[in-house]
Amino acid sequence: MTQLPAKPDSDSFPKKIVEAITGAIARIPSTEMTESPMPAEAARNVARQASLKAAAAAGTLGLPAGPLGWLTILPEMMKVWQIQTQMVADLAGVYGQTASLSREQMTYCLFRHGAAMAVRDLVVRMGERYLVKQVSLQALQVIAKKIGVKITQQALGKALSRWVPVVGAVGVAGYAYYDTAQVAKTAIELFERGIEPPENETRRLGTGTEPPLL
């Protein structure tokens, strides 16, 4: 009789995911991309290449089936986040915003589509532009924990598909492509519209007249 793989430790697995999230947003990667005269086209190329790279990496790590599949879940997510953080840095370069790229922006871009409620207060819309709220490292860690809860639920759900050889890997690759494309969409929208200078944060956020961007 076929048995489903045992779930990872209920305490250590979420903790490791939070640590991985914290690590992903802790450092802003450098980029060789410079401001493009045609940023929309350049951004699409960056997004497409990163999505394909993420799909290939996730698909390869998703090949082990059965109990071994559990062991590749976290490495797969970490690899995809590594590719995505580099993509966001490259997109910032394309739009000439490398110098202003922050951990808050990186967190928002990576997790807005998958954990919107956790990152909703990091960015607010001011007319046609965005204001990125600067928060403490402790606050970012709290946000990472909230994201971790959502990501853990998603990971446990996807893990069952790894029980099926090849088919599971195809599904993992497809999701990584989609996920990376969504990260790119958020980043492009953020950089394309422009970001308010940080010094306006206190005055703007204190009014309470603008709703958080979802």
Rank of each mutant, 00 (worst) to 15 (best):
M1T: 04
T2N: 12
Q3I: 11
L4D: 05
L4M: 10
P5L: 11
P5W: 13
K7I: 03
K7M: 10
P8D: 01
D9Y: 07
D9Q: 01
S12Q: 13
S12R: 06
F13L: 01
P14D: 00
P14C: 03
I17R: 02
I17S: 00
V18Y: 11
E19K: 09
G23F: 06
G23R: 09
I25V: 15
I25R: 08
A26K: 15
R27L: 01
P29G: 00
S30W: 00
T31N: 00
T34E: 06
P37S: 14
A42W: 13
R44V: 03
R44A: 05
V46Y: 10
R48E: 15
R48A: 14
A50G: 03
S51F: 06
S51A: 15
K53V: 01
A54T: 09
A58W: 04
T60G: 13
L61C: 02
G62W: 12
P64S: 08
P67M: 10
G69E: 10
G69P: 11
T72P: 02
I73Q: 15
P75C: 07
Q82A: 06
M87V: 09
D90W: 04
A99T: 12
S100N: 09
S102E: 08
R103S: 03
E104Q: 15
Q105K: 14
Q105P: 01
T107G: 09
C109K: 12
L110Q: 10
L110H: 07
F111G: 07
F111P: 05
R112K: 08
H113G: 00
R120Q: 11
R120T: 11
D121E: 10
D121T: 13
L122W: 12
V123N: 05
R125P: 02
G127T: 02
G127E: 00
Y130V: 03
K133Y: 01
S136N: 10
A139D: 15
K146A: 03
V149E: 11
K150W: 02
I151G: 04
T152D: 12
T152W: 05
T152H: 13
Q153N: 08
A155H: 01
L156P: 03
K158Y: 12
K158A: 12
S161D: 13
P165F: 05
A173Q: 08
A176N: 07
Y178R: 14
A181H: 10
A181V: 04
V183C: 07
A184T: 09
A184V: 02
K185W: 06
I188D: 07
E189M: 10
E189W: 04
E192T: 09
G194E: 04
E196Q: 12
E196Y: 14
E196K: 08
P198F: 02
E199Y: 13
E199D: 14
E201A: 15
T202V: 10
L205I: 12
G206E: 07
T207Q: 14
G208R: 01
T209G: 06
T209F: 05
E210G: 09
E210W: 11
L213C: 01
